[in-house]
Each structure stands twice: as C-alpha cells, then as structure tokens.
C-alpha cells in the first residue's frame, strides 16, 4: 500500500468519526460502560486473588516432635526428621521452633502466668512446614505422618479444605463473570458499529463498484473502530485510577498489619490500565472488522 493511501485511510477514519457523530458517541459510550465494568471487576478480582493467595500461603503444617529423654539422641533424630521432610516432594520450607520459643509465643499471647512453666516446659519442639503448592497441604501432612518420631501432625484439617474449595469457586466465578462481560461488550460494540456501517452501505457498494479492493474498503472502518476503542478507554482509565488511588490511600493505613492487604497502586493500575486500552482496541478493531465483512461480498 502506498503511503498516500495510508494517509487517506487515516484521514477518512477521522472524518467518519465526525460525520457519524451520534453513532460514534453511542459506540464510544458502549465501550466506556463496558470497560468501566471490566476495570472495576478486574481490580476487585485481583485484590480478592491476593487475599486468597495470602490466606493460602498462611496455611502451614505443625509437626510436633516426639520427646526423647536423651538430649543428644533427640538432636540427631530431629535432624534426621528435618532432612526427611525437606526431601519430600512439594515441601517448600521447614522451620524449626524449639519448645522454649513455643512457650514464649504462648506467654506473649496468653500472659505471664504461663511463665511458671519455664522451669519444666511440657511443650514439644515443633517443625513448621509449608507445601510448595498450598493446595497439596493435606497430602504433605499425610506423608509426614508416616515418618518416625512425629508426635502429632496438625494443619487445620477440614477447615483448610473448605477454605481452598471456597477460594477456588470464587476464582472461577470471577473468571466467568469477566469473560461474560467481555463477550457482552464485543457483541454490543460490534452491533453499534454494524449500525454505523449499515448507514454507509451505499458508500461501500459504490467503492466496490468502481474497483476498490476489500482491504481498501475495510481499513478506514477498522481504523475507526480502533479510535472508538481507544477513546472509549479514556474515561474508565481515569475513573478507575482516581478511585483506586484514593481508596488505597485512605484504606491502606487502616489495614496495616492485617491479613487483608490491598494491592499497591503502582503495578496494579499500570496493569489494569494497559488491559483496558488493549481490550478497547481489540473490541473496536474486531467489531468493525466483523461488521464490514458482511458488506464486502458485493
């Protein structure tokens, strides 16, 4: 294609936006509304996902080690046990906590009265084990249980499984909602663009009649769809950014130290905004491409 022709296509696509004023407005509005929903949804989903990840990563196995009378023997057996656990597949980390540390934690949590146990500590030494994939915690726990010299292996059996299935369901629902939203958006936008193109059926017919190639007819329409997608993403980007920025800065300090932490502004908004521009462009281009295709078979 000649540069002159490309310039013509760009010129035509701009002119056409202006000429079809209210249809352009309708298309841009359709993109705007959809992207606004997609943006809000994406941010909610990504934050929920982070919370879910945090919850998952908090799940650990508590391995209480059998008590030996002989201190040296105990040391040796503990080291053997640690090595065995570390060698299991799916184990990410093993942290040793001596019974003195365990007691200190209890004192910290429940009060000084417990310090009388310092002389005769009844607690066990404990290993805290994390599975590489939190969802396989139960499996790892079962394997550890088979090893020698464990007194008890605890991981919140039952609760953990419920938590995981709840998190998995919410993730899937979120994914389905986002896909449904995108699909609706594509449908909406390709329909709006189709109406603008029907209005210009004669124009396309005449172009074909005087010997225009299909791509010559199509390119201005596709460029027009691109502008519509791009313009339609402006308001959602501004709204989503401003709202999340303010929300984050007013909520983040209050959530400090809590399990529920928000994703920080910088990478999140870049990602979401890039996603919005990309989706806007894609649905704009795809919408016009599909709509104009029908009229090219003359």
């Amino acid at each position: 294609m000649k540069g002159r022709t490309l310039r013509r296509h760009f010129r035509e696509s701009f002119k056409s936006l202006g000429r079809n004023g209210w249809m352009t407005f309708a298309s841009i509005s359709a993109v705007t509304v959809t992207l606004l929903l997609v943006g809000v949804f994406a941010i909610i989903m990504m934050n929920l996902n982070k919370v879910a990840d945090d919850l998952e990563n908090d799940v650990e196995i508590r391995v209480m080690i059998e008590i030996f009378n002989d201190e040296a023997e105990m040391k040796a057996e503990e080291e053997k046990l640690i090595a065995q656990i570390e060698n299991l597949p799916d184990v990410a980390e093993v942290v040793y906590s001596a019974k003195e540390d365990e007691l200190e934690d209890l004192i910290h949590d429940f009060g000084d009265e417990l310090s009388l146990f310092e002389q005769n500590n009844p607690l066990h030494n404990v290993l805290y084990v994390k599975a590489a994939d939190p969802q396989s915690t139960a499996d790892v726990a079962a394997q550890i249980e088979k090893l020698d010299h464990t007194y008890k292996v605890l991981y919140g059996e039952g609760k953990v499984e419920k938590l995981f299935s709840f998190l998995n369901i919410s993730r899937n629902i979120g994914l389905v909602l986002i896909l449904g939203l995108l699909f609706t958006a594509m449908f909406l936008i390709s329909n709006t663009i189709r109406i603008t193109i029907i209005a210009r059926k004669d124009e396309i017919e005449i172009m074909k009649l005087v010997g225009a190639t299909n791509s010559f007819v199509r390119i201005p329409f596709v460029l027009e769809g691109m502008w519509i997608g791009l313009l339609g993403s402006v308001i959602p980007i501004v709204v989503v950014s401003v709202v999340y920025y303010n929300l984050y800065h007013s909520l983040a300090p209050r959530l400090e130290g809590n399990m529920l932490e928000l994703l920080s502004v910088t990478p999140l908004l870049y990602q979401v905004n890039a996603l919005l521009v990309l989706i806007g462009l894609l649905i704009g281009i795809w919408g016009s491409f599909m709509s104009v295709r029908k009229f090219l078979k003359i």
């Binding site: 000649k2 002159r4 005449i206 005087v210 010997g211």
Partner: peptide, 11 residues
C-alpha cells in the same frame, strides 16, 4: 475523484 482515489492514482 473518488473513483480514481480508490484505485490509488497520483493526486
């Protein structure tokens, strides 16, 4: 002119 632009003639 349209009929000539469409076939990419010189301006």
């Amino acid at each position: 002119a349209f009929a000539m632009e469409v076939i990419e003639e010189q301006p």
